[in-house]
Simulated assay, not measured.
Amino acid sequence: MAKLLNTSATNFVLENLISKARKHVVLISPYLKLNKRIKKLIEDAILRGVSFHIVYGKQELHADEKSWLLSSTKIKLFFCDDLHAKCYLNEAYSIISSMNLYEFSQVHNYEMSILLSKKDDNDAYTDSVKEAERLIRMGQEQYQIPVLTETESPAYPLTHQQSVVVKHVGRAIKQEENGKISTNLLASKYKTNAQRLLVSLRASGFISTENGRDELTEKSMDIGAEFHESSAGHYFLWPADLNLHTMLSN
Results as ranks from 00 to 15, higher is better:
M1Q: 08
K3T: 09
K3D: 10
L4E: 12
L4F: 10
T7M: 01
S8E: 12
A9P: 00
T10Y: 09
T10V: 00
N11D: 06
N11I: 00
F12A: 12
V13F: 15
E15K: 15
E15V: 00
E15S: 14
N16Q: 15
L17M: 13
S19L: 00
K20R: 14
K23W: 06
K23C: 03
L27V: 01
L32C: 03
L32E: 02
L32H: 04
K33S: 14
L34A: 02
L34W: 10
K36S: 13
K36W: 05
R37A: 03
I38R: 01
K39S: 02
K39E: 12
L41K: 14
I42H: 03
I42R: 02
I42G: 03
L47N: 08
G49K: 09
V55W: 05
G57L: 08
K58Q: 10
Q59M: 14
A63L: 13
D64A: 13
E65A: 12
L69I: 06
L70M: 06
K76I: 00
K76W: 03
F78W: 03
F79K: 10
F79E: 06
C80L: 12
D81R: 12
L83E: 05
H84E: 13
H84L: 11
A85E: 15
A85H: 11
K86Q: 11
L89G: 04
Y93L: 12
I95S: 06
I96Y: 10
I96F: 11
M99Y: 11
E103Y: 08
F104M: 08
S105H: 15
V107Y: 11
H108M: 11
H108R: 13
N109Q: 11
N109E: 15
E111Q: 07
I114E: 10
I114K: 10
L116M: 08
D121S: 08
T126F: 10
V129T: 04
E131I: 00
A132E: 01
A132N: 01
E133R: 01
R134P: 00
L135K: 13
L135H: 09
I136G: 02
M138P: 00
E141Y: 06
Q142P: 00
I145F: 14
T149Y: 10
E150N: 09
E150C: 01
T151K: 15
E152H: 08
P154K: 07
Y156Q: 02
P157Y: 07
P157F: 05
P157D: 11
T159H: 09
H160E: 06
Q162S: 15
V165F: 03
K167W: 03
H168V: 00
V169R: 09
G170C: 05
A172M: 13
I173R: 14
I173K: 13
Q175C: 11
G179S: 10
K180G: 00
I181E: 05
I181N: 02
I181P: 12
I181L: 10
S182F: 09
N184E: 07
L185Y: 08
L186H: 02
Y190K: 05
T192W: 01
T192L: 04
R196S: 15
R196L: 11
L197G: 07
L197H: 06
V199A: 10
S200T: 00
S204F: 03
G205N: 08
I207T: 06
S208E: 14
G212D: 07
G212W: 09
E218S: 10
A225L: 01
S231G: 06
S231E: 14
A232H: 14
F236M: 08
W238M: 05
W238H: 11
A240I: 12
L242Q: 05
H245E: 14
M247V: 04
L248D: 07
